[in-house]
């Protein structure tokens, strides 16, 4: 199959994701910002939840995709799966960072502090550190085969570690700080559920769409340079013959 046919196919496919994401996000933003009532306890500030929680969910979804992709890569050694892993790690890192950022903005009016060692914030920080470590690791390996393999190993170990980190941090928090600061004030009523659901679905679709674009980007980049490299080598070859 020629490259541009592959790309055509992916582009046709990804349109559904992009369009779906746009529709869900627009509807979610409308309902979340305008169409829904303020929360009894938190007032208008609860609207931050509709952007913060979907970002956080999506980054976890992204990490799951990364772990599955890494396993798949170690099994099949398919370079495009590795491109997908690299893409999903970068996107997950961005989503995690944004989830942390919006979480901090939410924390200021509700808890009156930008940062607290809340279990969820802490485990997301560790998640972000792991993802940044993954991306750094990949830049420090010369051989692309090794780069993919090492990345996959780190991703899998980190994925197994994630629930353990979460539980340990949660126990640690409950030990040191009674439940004065928590999100228990927010009971999920149906009024909150609709925008939350719309935004969550929209964010997941957006993430899938971005993932497709980024995978395509890395794949095309690798392809173009591999071809260029081959041409360059052939150029050397023909020069040495003459």
């Amino acid at each position: 199959m020629t490259i541009h046919r592959v790309i055509r196919k992916v582009q046709r496919f990804e349109g559904w994701f992009g369009g779906g994401a746009a529709l869900c996000l627009i509807a979610g933003l409308y309902v979340g910002l305008i169409g829904s009532p303020p929360d009894y306890y938190q007032g208008e500030v609860v609207r931050i939840m509709y952007i913060h929680v979907p970002l956080a969910h999506t980054s976890l979804l992204g990490y799951t995709v990364l772990a599955v992709g890494s396993l798949w890569y170690l099994w099949k050694r398919d370079p495009i799966v590795d491109n997908m892993c690299q893409a999903v790690a970068a996107l997950s890192a961005v989503f995690t960072a944004l989830a942390l950022g919006t979480g901090m903005i939410w924390g200021k009016p509700t808890w009156d502090t930008w940062w607290t060692w809340d279990a969820r914030l802490t485990s997301f920080t560790v998640l972000l550190l792991i993802l940044i470590g993954y991306l750094m690791l990949r830049t420090f390996v010369d051989d692309p085969e090794k780069e993919a393999r090492y990345g996959a190993i780190l991703a899998i170990v980190g994925f197994v570690d994630l629930p353990i980190i979460h539980f340990s941090v949660e126990w640690w928090r409950t030990l040191h700080q009674p439940q004065s600061i928590s999100m228990r004030g927010v009971s999920i009523s149906s009024g909150l559920l609709v925008p939350l659901l719309l935004m969550s679905v929209g964010m997941s679709l957006l993430f899938s769409y971005m993932l497709m674009v980024r995978t395509q980007l890395l794949y095309l980049d690798r392809l173009l340079h591999a071809k260029k490299g081959r041409l360059l080598s052939q150029f050397h070859l023909s020069k040495s013959d003459s």
Binding site: D143, A226, G229, L232, L237
Partner: peptide, 11 residues
């Protein structure tokens, strides 16, 4: 065999 963008061994 290729390293990164450069192919060092051919066929």
């Amino acid at each position: 065999k290729s390293y990164g963008h450069f192919q060092v061994l051919h066929d």
